[in-house]
Amino acid sequence: MSSAVLTAVGLRKTYGTTPALAGADFGISAGETVAVMGPSGSGKSTLLHCLAGIVLPDAGTIMYGGRKLSALSDAERSALRRSEFGFVFQFGQLVPELTCIENVALPLRLTGHSRRAAERAAMPWLERLEVADLANKRPGEISGGQGQRVAVARALATAPRVVFADEPTGALDSLNGERVMELLTDAARATKAAVVLVTHDPRVAAYADREIVVRDGHTRSMGAAA
């Protein structure tokens, strides 16, 4: 894949005696959304964690922007996650003490922006995700669907090159889940962010451009979009 922003070849990872990845390959281009599917325990979350530099594989190579991820120090990988990667989890994992705008501004604050500049940059993302009216509310005062939109805004606020979304609609009803997927994929395509989307739900995977299936730690590509 010539324009790949993130690639992985031959990834192996074992937890104790349990193999989670047994030679997984992966590649994603800028602006592309790839669904990672597979049964529970197949290794898809481990693949996501390796690709995001959260855990290091036992073997194999991950290349991001011409750099070998395993050659970076913990601090360098943390900096990468703060500034160039975005994350959306099944449960928004918003900071409950902060308002929505403060949550979205948080990754910008962590990369050195002043509070004012960070919140000014965060507001358009809340607008884009259709939750600007909730800017001053705390996560406990909003619904799960609204919280997930705030989480997507937070993931995109730093203009990441790669967004990692782990079951981003798993806790939402169908209509809310679909809207979150529409907003996530639209925003990612518009900003040329690549999205690694881990899901067990085929209707969510259908928002992606293509899918990878993980079985027993191996990946199988299921082909590109028509």
């Binding site: 529409e182 085929p202 209707r203 995977a205 259908a206 928002y207 992606a208 451009d209 899918e211 299936v213 199988r220 299921m222 082909g223 979009a225 028509a226």
Partner: peptide, 20 residues
């Protein structure tokens, strides 16, 4: 089964684009 799965998902992507 994998080939069938890919074909089903291809159609699901088309329908999702149309629906959106």
């Amino acid at each position: 089964l994998d080939a069938q799965r890919a074909e089903h998902l291809r159609l699901m992507r088309e329908l999702t684009r149309r629906k959106t």
